[in-house]
Simulated assay, not measured.
Amino acid sequence: MLQSIIFDMDGTLFQTDKILELSLEDTFNYLRSLDKWHTVTPIDKYREIMGVPLPKVWEALLPDHSDEVREQVDAYFLERLIENIRSGKGALYPNVKEVFSYLKENNCSIYIASNGLTEYLKTIVHYYHLDNWVTETFSIQQIQTLDKGDLVKKIIERYDINKAAVVGDRFSDIKAAKDNELIAIGCNFDFAQEEELAQADIVIDDLIVLKTIVHNM
């Protein structure tokens, strides 16, 4: 049986799409109010790169804007995300809490490793009471390289983890598992891409399947 599972947050545990478009629209309306954006909100572009750290998001969405403007946008976007979570506009994916309870009961420790910002992750964990099961949540902000593989390595070293899996929906999660010689479990959810999932060891369509996977490993 697996000793530990390291979960991604966005698009894996949390249905980010429920607040993503809303928060992004708020943010670009803010830019429009500053006369620094004059076209449609690039939601499709964001969906394509979903899963990368936010600094890289703003480089892609605002290539012609200054670092100062990107920092302003980053702060405003975080505020909108947090407010929308606290307003109950987001949701966990089906069976998150059932799977977490099962893992905890079977002595499989749970960690979160996310490209999301620390305050954003804290808000989700607190709002949905995930700290009832999760040992610790790690943000990409804790790693200078902004490399999820390094973030997962930090978890492994801190908790002396040997037999574990990384569960996530994007290539950064799969690569993080492979870089650390862990099992890569791809989630075929909202933001997943077929060519990325093809590189996972296992692909699931529902988190509930983890109960069987964990038990058989």
Rank of each mutant, 00 (worst) to 15 (best):
Y120S: 02
N95S: 13
S23Q: 00
Y93I: 12
S109H: 12
E98I: 08
E59C: 13
K18P: 12
N115M: 11
V96N: 00
E83S: 13
L54Q: 13
S114R: 14
A75I: 15
Y30T: 07
I19C: 05
W58Q: 04
D74S: 14
V96C: 06
S87E: 14
N29M: 03
L62R: 01
L24M: 05
E71I: 15
E79G: 11
W37V: 01
M50V: 12
D44E: 10
S87V: 12
R32P: 01
K89M: 09
I112P: 06
N95T: 07
I110C: 00
Y111S: 07
I85R: 03
V40T: 15
C108V: 15
V57K: 07
V99D: 08
Q72T: 14
R86M: 15
Y30S: 04
R70P: 02
Y30D: 07
T41M: 06
A113Q: 08
Y30I: 08
S101T: 05
I82W: 02
Y30C: 07
D74K: 14
T27M: 05
D67A: 07
S114Y: 07
S87H: 11
K56N: 07
N84Q: 12
R32F: 03
H65S: 08
P94C: 15
W58D: 04
Y102L: 00
L31R: 09
M50F: 15
S23P: 02
F28I: 05
E71V: 14
R32T: 11
W37N: 06
L24E: 02
K97N: 08
I43M: 03
S66G: 01
I19Q: 07
A91C: 14
V69F: 03
A75R: 15
L92W: 10
